[in-house]
């Protein structure tokens, strides 16, 4: 099984990926699978009725709101970065976490690069398939490069205006 980077607590680690990502023209094998939104809409109910975990892959132009009713039963939402410059998935992840209250795995797939690690972690992604071969160690370091954050996000970090109000010291 291919390696996957999982974010646990405040660090990244390598884990075996129990899911197989299935294209629309592939036959669905046994085991846990990630399928497209279209396929989920036609076959999702059937697959969820079997004893396996199902994840849904959202293209950059698909919205997480489309999954709302089924979210509680979906194990993984995989958000696609068609190019690293295409930042739509950052909004999709934020909406999944902050608005829809999704607790499952939010996975970054596609053109996923180390330089975006901190943005992804902040928006609520918790698993990553780096396209640049980044290691968990690099991922952890990149996500922790900044001691403070200026705004609230899905990671729940205390923004600077809260730090200031509570008089926390600047570490380091």
């Amino acid at each position: 099984m291919p390696k996957l980077i999982r974010w646990r607590g405040d660090r990244a680690e390598a884990v075996e990926d129990p899911f197989t990502s299935i294209d629309d023209d592939q036959v669905i094998p046994q085991g846990d699978v990630i399928i497209s939104l279209r396929r989920f809409q036609s076959e999702g109910a059937f697959l969820l009725g079997q004893c396996r975990q199902v994840g849904v892959r959202l293209a950059a132009d698909e919205t997480p709101e489309a999954l709302d009713a089924d979210l509680a039963r979906i194990a993984v939402v995989a958000l696609v970065f068609p190019k690293f410059r295409d930042g739509r998935a950052f909004s999709a992840a934020s909406i999944l976490r902050d608005r829809l209250g999704y607790q499952g795995e939010v996975r970054a797939v596609g053109d996923v690069l180390l330089e975006q690690a901190k943005f992804m972690v902040r928006c609520g992604f918790d698993s990553f398939e780096p396209a640049d071969g980044a290691t968990p160690g690099q991922w952890t370091a990149a996500a922790h490069r900044f001691r403070h954050v200026y705004q609230r996000a899905a990671d729940g970090l205390e923004p600077v205006f809260v730090e200031r109000a509570t008089g926390h010291e600047t570490p380091g």
């Binding site: 295409d86 950052f90 909004s91 934020s94 975006q116 928006c123 954050v149 200026y150 705004q151 996000a153």
Partner: peptide, 13 residues
Amino acid sequence: RQWSTFHPEFSFL
């Protein structure tokens, strides 16, 4: 300025 600095959602518009 502060809100938009390293905004995680809006750095790849």
